[in-house]
Amino acid sequence: MKHEKQHWRKKSYQKVNLETKLLVVDQILSGQLSNNQASKKYEVPRTTIAYWLRKYSTLVQRNTGMSKNDEIKKLKERIEELEFQKDFQQDIIADMELITGVDMSKKSLPKTLAKEIEKKKKDRLKENGSMDVLGYLSKPSTKDSKHNKNKK
């Protein structure tokens, strides 16, 4: 006797209470379980768990009270802070390269950052004159600077 396969037999699930839903979502968000593990452990479809996660994240966002505009403002402030740090670090690298005479940035940094540092070095040399190996500035003579001011 042959057994006929039943196609697309829908699996029945029990209803899950709110506490269990929140427990599952919390375990997934904290990294204790993956979606697949939670699906097997609690016998809930993965799509249902994904729905719970979406619903929970919007609930959390409403409770924190952070609007999209506030979040954008906070991120812009963070970008400004990081840009300041980057400029400060590039200034230090440019100064060190001028003092030591060693091009560290070309060897160890991406090309775009190395170019920015090279530009900062050139600007420093134009402003301050040249630096020798010991880090002493050789500023243009006062006659040259007075002559340049008169030209302007």
Rank of each mutant, 00 (worst) to 15 (best):
residue 111 K to V: 00
residue 100 T to G: 07
residue 71 E to S: 15
residue 1 M to Q: 06
residue 36 N to Q: 09
residue 119 K to A: 08
residue 138 S to F: 04
residue 116 E to W: 00
residue 112 T to Q: 03
residue 74 K to N: 12
residue 3 H to F: 11
residue 71 E to R: 15
residue 51 Y to P: 02
residue 62 R to L: 14
residue 88 F to N: 09
residue 63 N to S: 11
residue 44 V to N: 07
residue 99 I to C: 09
residue 141 S to V: 01
residue 122 K to F: 01
residue 143 K to M: 11
residue 10 K to N: 14
residue 146 K to M: 13
residue 116 E to C: 05
residue 65 G to E: 13
residue 118 E to F: 09
residue 129 G to R: 05
residue 11 K to T: 12
residue 59 L to Q: 15
residue 123 D to F: 11
residue 32 Q to M: 11
residue 56 Y to A: 04
residue 40 K to L: 14
residue 33 L to F: 13
residue 54 R to C: 01
residue 110 P to R: 00
residue 110 P to G: 06
residue 38 A to T: 02
residue 122 K to M: 06
residue 112 T to D: 15
residue 98 L to M: 09
residue 31 G to P: 04
residue 57 S to D: 14
residue 71 E to N: 10
residue 1 M to S: 03
residue 54 R to Y: 06
residue 87 D to N: 04
residue 125 L to M: 12
residue 20 T to A: 05
residue 100 T to Q: 08
residue 150 N to K: 13
residue 25 V to P: 03
residue 104 M to E: 11
residue 40 K to A: 14
residue 91 D to W: 02
residue 65 G to C: 09
residue 59 L to E: 10
residue 101 G to V: 05
residue 124 R to Q: 08
residue 17 N to A: 04
residue 78 R to C: 03
residue 118 E to A: 06
residue 143 K to S: 11
residue 110 P to H: 01
residue 151 K to R: 11
residue 61 Q to E: 10
residue 129 G to V: 08
residue 116 E to L: 05
residue 78 R to N: 14
residue 67 S to D: 04
residue 77 E to L: 13
residue 23 L to W: 02
residue 49 I to G: 00
residue 11 K to S: 12
residue 8 W to R: 13
residue 101 G to E: 03
residue 115 K to W: 00
residue 40 K to P: 00
residue 24 V to I: 14
residue 83 E to L: 13
residue 128 N to Y: 12
residue 20 T to F: 03
residue 54 R to L: 03
residue 69 N to S: 04
residue 16 V to W: 02
residue 35 N to H: 04
residue 142 T to Y: 03
residue 130 S to T: 10
residue 57 S to R: 15
residue 99 I to T: 15
residue 128 N to F: 15
residue 142 T to V: 01
residue 40 K to F: 01
residue 126 K to C: 00
residue 125 L to V: 08
residue 15 K to P: 15
residue 32 Q to T: 13
residue 137 L to A: 15
residue 73 K to A: 06
residue 75 L to D: 07
residue 84 F to L: 06
residue 53 L to V: 02
residue 144 D to A: 15
residue 117 I to Q: 01
residue 30 S to H: 09
residue 109 L to R: 01
residue 9 R to S: 14
residue 40 K to E: 10
residue 50 A to N: 14
residue 19 E to S: 14
residue 29 L to K: 15
residue 98 L to Q: 04
residue 41 K to R: 13
residue 136 Y to Q: 07
residue 64 T to Q: 13
residue 103 D to K: 04
residue 74 K to L: 09
residue 144 D to S: 05
residue 28 I to A: 07
residue 65 G to F: 01
residue 45 P to K: 05
residue 110 P to A: 00
residue 5 K to S: 00
residue 78 R to K: 14
residue 40 K to G: 01
residue 29 L to A: 00
residue 96 M to Q: 12
residue 142 T to R: 13
residue 73 K to R: 12
residue 10 K to Y: 12
residue 81 E to L: 10
residue 72 I to N: 01
residue 149 K to A: 14
residue 138 S to Q: 09
residue 46 R to L: 13
residue 8 W to D: 11
residue 66 M to F: 10
residue 143 K to L: 10
residue 19 E to H: 14
residue 99 I to H: 07
residue 18 L to C: 10
residue 152 K to V: 06
residue 89 Q to H: 02
residue 39 S to G: 10
residue 104 M to P: 01
residue 131 M to F: 07
residue 6 Q to W: 08
residue 41 K to Y: 04
residue 97 E to V: 02
residue 7 H to R: 02
residue 38 A to K: 03
residue 131 M to L: 12
